[in-house]
Structure formats: C-alpha cells, structure tokens
Amino acid sequence: MKFNLGLKRPFIIYLAALLVPINWLPAQQPTGQEILDRINEITNVTNSSSVMTQTIKTSSGQLRTFELESYSANKGEKTLMRYRKPSSVKGQAFLMLNHADDIWTYFPRTKRVRKLASHAKKQSAQGSDFTYEDMGGGDTWKEEFEPTNLGEVELEGQSCWKLQLDGIPEKEPPYPKMTIIVRQEDYHPLQVDYYSDREDVMKSLYMGDIQEVDGIPTAMKLTMRNHDKATETKMEVLSITYDWEPPKGFFSERNLKK
C-alpha cells in the first residue's frame, strides 16, 4: 500500500520549504503608521544647530543665494533662523514658536521686532517655495494625516517604501494629501509630494546627499520644486550638529535682536 498524502508533488519539496531559514522569506511589510513613526524619529530630532544656504529665484528672474544659521529645539517646536549673507539682510532673523503658529521677525536696520499674522504660517517663507508650516516640524504629519503604506518602490536604485498620507479634514491639514518615499535602509525620506485640492502634485521636496550626522541620517541637499509655478528653492546644509543644547532664553525676542 502506497503512503499517499494526497499530494501531487514529491513530499521532499514541502519538507525543503519548511527548512528554508526564516530570513530568506520576504520582509514583512511595515504598516503606514510604523513607517510614519520611524520618519518622525529621524526628521524630528530634539535639537539642532546648522548653517545652510538657500537659493531662490527673484521676480527679475535672477537667482539669489542667502546664507543663514538655523536653530531648532523641542522637535521643531521652536526655530530661530538668522541671515548671515548678503549684507542687505545680514542679521535679519525669524523666530517661530509653537510649530510656526507664532512668527516674529527682527529687522537690524530699524532694530524693530515685528510679529507676523497667524495665517502667515501657510504662506511662502521668505520668498521660497517652502511655507513656514513646512519648516515647522513636529508631529503635524502624525496628528493631521492618516498613513497608508502603498508598498515597495525603487528610487535612485534604492529600495523604498511609498507612504500615502491622507489629510484628516477636521484637523485642517496643510495639504489634502501627501506621498512620501522613504528608504527602507534607514527610513529617511527621499521625496515628498504635496498635493493640491485638485489631487495634482503641487510641489515636491527632493532630499539628497544623505549623510550620517551624530548618528542621524541627514539630507544635506533639499530642493522644493513648485510644479504649478515652475519655481524651485534649493537649500544646502553647510554644517549641522544635533549635539546642541539651547541656552536659556535662546528662543526669545531678546535673542532675536542679537
């Protein structure tokens, strides 16, 4: 009598399958929430101090490059940016508190500090294609969006996850939808697409030259391209450290004037 398992293929094949090491199997796909948590860990570092350049296109069609120092604390809740070059705006500074809900600016020529209106948060930050809100950081993405992992994609030869963030209407998100492509290697975003109301990609943020700084992967080059206006703003990090503690009163109107 034949031993019949009711199988058409040899038993050995099934046995071999059971013996395959577990790490040979495809990686389990993380959930959207897990990816977003990992992104937040990387991009929302507690404190940072950096020097960077920002290049914009003026209304005359010329490129204008600024050099500025930027300080951030409490996972982006507080930010201070101060211009170093060119001379026309040297010393001009912006202080953003409460994730850019409150913005002050200091003018060195008049030595006056002025507060910008609360709705300025959604407006272009200093002539760039970023809004103050884009720079605000924090848990905005986690709080105002519903994440979904759209699966594995490849970008610039790197295996990535594509994450879709759908805005939660009652939270009044800055964009109705976003997609983020993150490296599987370290969950650092490589590309963020911001959607307009029309469901079209309004602008995209491209992050490149990712280097390890103080143990944290950091994009040294960022380009925000506005597809509607055909403009782009480039930012390049010249130096950065996360090993920085803000002195007491650093994020204050008084320090803004220094």
């Binding site: 209304s59 005359s60 010329q62 600024f66 001009q92 003018f107 200093q126 002539g127």
Partner: peptide, 10 residues
C-alpha cells in the same frame, strides 16, 4: 527687507 528676502526686486 521683506521684499529682498521675498525676491521682489522692484
């Protein structure tokens, strides 16, 4: 100053 930062040359 705001115009300069905003690229509004005129």
């Amino acid at each position: 100053s705001m115009a300069f930062i905003g690229g509004q040359d005129k």
